[in-house]
Nucleic acid binder design. Structure first.
Lengths: 350, 350
DNA sequence: ATCTCGTTTGGTAACGTTCCCAAAAATGGG
DNA sequence: CCCATTTTTGGGAACGTTACCAAACGAGAT
């Protein structure tokens, strides 16, 4: 009946040492007022002596709360999502919760698999960036959920936090227009991805509002990777070397790829071709020229997502949709159309 | 006594529906052979009908295994560690485990805090990149641990997996020597960081072995960030503009910072100054010129760490130290000393 | 001294599993 | 058709915690 060796002590061990019942130990540990001052001291010193740490599993099983939060994002190795994860993690740590992080790789099957794992782990809730079109999987998740990122608006009945793409795109297109680029070529993502549809719709709306015929825009398709951006830019240059003076990419990786392609083609950015990115990944600061980009508030998305989820779990919040503003980060990849038109000739003849 | 509404069903609910005892349900679920074929069918169809999912908490409490693995790294938003995390996560997912990821921010207190949280969550084991000098915290962790990264050798009694820095540094210095750079300037990390000490020792050993006096090496200190690398490079150029023809940075971020500083100073890489990085972060591919770097097998470190940990947990493995080879990724930031000496003049007079 | 009231304590039943042991049912041989 | 043996099933107890209820205790009022 003595303290078991080689195992973590339980409240029963404590009770034995302190000479009280386990109920009393539980009271001392939970800071209940219904306990004498000297007994509390005795229990707490026994706790210190044995190095007791409460078994979170048993606590969770009894109380129904695990202190675990699920985070399902496309790819933790992707700098944007890593930043979101960091924000969520900081917020979670601040409220004493732990994060279970999963990468879905934009695969609905994997997402469903991870959601199931989260439910079985009895997480208190989850923050999810839902992939394309599995409406049902999320619907029957049955736990508090906060959606993050672009595709959140597909589920208007769930709380969500994302960056305001419409505001970001408008910010970018306004800025490009102010430099004289009224009809930038677009580097968009794969046709089957929701983000592409949304990006296109926002651009379309902007064009309508600004008396530009959307049909006249030059569009190339990539898959959100550097390599696909490079290939798309090469296709663009091949299609019409002179037409593309300005490119607006739907994410920074493709923009950086475009930058590589421009250099590869013997052209210069921004002198010959201006490039505007979207996301604000750290790597955009290290390119030459530095990539001017519309920066999504990645870390804040994680923090706010966690905050919304906490409130949802505590039942204080019925439903909310948070849209965070994007910001323009100017580096060197944009030039005005009035700048050195001769330069284009010089390099073109090179 | 009927199925509770609005709650996840338990094996008791299943037992009721299938008209058997909970023991029988447990047997059907665990695939035990001691059960009749038709009863198993009946139970399983009840499981499907109710949408039962086993409560992982109760299972863990009873069995003593949680299927949770802790991962403590300096910063999940750091591309190198994000890549490690991805590798660990893939390996974990393959064996049905879930990862609890924590960022220590190189702070021993945070690390200790996270290790305590992991112990309370009753994780089956942990993969840790230990920060500087808290030998004790890890020693009394009391759970299976695998160390990853550079500082692992501080704890020779624990299994660990890391990249072979000595091999990587030798690879880099050999390569630089083959280009005529026999005495590269060194951009190292903060003096209080273990990684810096190790890097320096390896360089020292290499120099002794190659008849180079280590004392003649020019050394600048940064703190593993782009900005600190930029500042260090600027100091280096100020110290002696002509001396530094080649810089070997202890990590890629500082190398990229150095690249920015070189450009800022009106010089060119690699024509005027060669830069070699260390790590192999994705961003190194997007700079101009692309950063030649010694690439650590980040993702493999995560995968192998997870593999070692699994074996340790299962008791198959007593102790092992795995060292993975680094690889040289050549991009464009290195030039031979024989290349265009006139170029230096031309730019220098610019 | 007795009674009441408030504080402090212990006992016990959950939470949902798994595991062991014994009871029941099915099988086979005489 | 009965007994021995195997297969299948049910009834607990346990994992470590929390929560509720009742018992014990002291103190103050009568």
């Amino acid at each position: 009946m003595s303290t078991r060796r080689n195992k973590q002590p339980t409240i029963i061990d404590i009770a034995e040492v302190a000479g009280v019942s386990k109920s009393t130990v539980a009271r001392a540990l939970s800071g209940s007022p219904h306990i004498g001052e000297k007994t509390r001291e005795r229990v707490l010193s026994a706790v210190r002596a044995l190095g007791y740490e409460r078994n979170h599993l048993a606590h969770s099983l009894r109380s129904g709360k695990t202190g675990l939060i699920g985070l399902v994002i496309p790819d933790i190795a992707n700098p944007f999502w890593a930043e979101v994860a960091r924000g969520a993690q900081d917020a979670a740590a601040a409220s004493g919760a732990s994060l279970l992080i999963f990468s879905s790789d934009w695969d609905p099957d994997r997402e469903a698999h991870h959601l199931r794992a989260l439910r079985q782990a009895r997480v208190d809730g989850a923050i999810v960036n839902p992939v394309a079109d599995n409406v049902d999987g999320l619907g029957r998740f049955g736990l508090p959920v906060v959606l993050i990122g672009s595709s959140a608006e597909r589920f208007p009945e769930l709380s969500s936090v994302g960056s305001d793409i419409a505001q970001g795109v408008a910010l970018g297109l306004d800025h490009l227009a102010s430099l004289g680029h009224h009809r930038p070529a677009l580097l968009v993502g794969s046709a089957n991805r929701l983000a592409r549809v949304r990006f296109m719709r926002v651009v379309h709306d902007y064009c309508i509002a600004h008396d530009i015929d959307p049909a006249t825009l030059v569009i190339e398709e990539g898959s959100y990777t550097v390599e696909s951006g490079r290939a798309a830019m090469l296709r663009l240059l091949e299609r019409d070397p002179k037409a593309a003076r300005c490119v607006f990419a739907a994410n920074d990786l493709m923009a950086l790829g475009a930058l590589l392609a421009v250099r590869e083609a013997g052209l210069r950015c921004p002198d010959d071709i201006s490039i505007l990115g979207f996301d604000g990944i750290p790597a955009a600061a290290f390119s030459d020229p530095g990539l001017t980009t519309i920066e999504k508030p990645a870390r804040t998305i994680g923090v706010e997502g966690m905050r919304l989820l906490t409130e949802t779990i505590e039942g204080q919040l019925e439903h909310r949709r948070v849209l965070l503003d994007c910001a323009l980060t100017s580096r060197g990849s944009l030039a005005s159309t009035n700048d050195s038109p001769t330069r284009l000739m010089a390099v073109g003849s090179n």
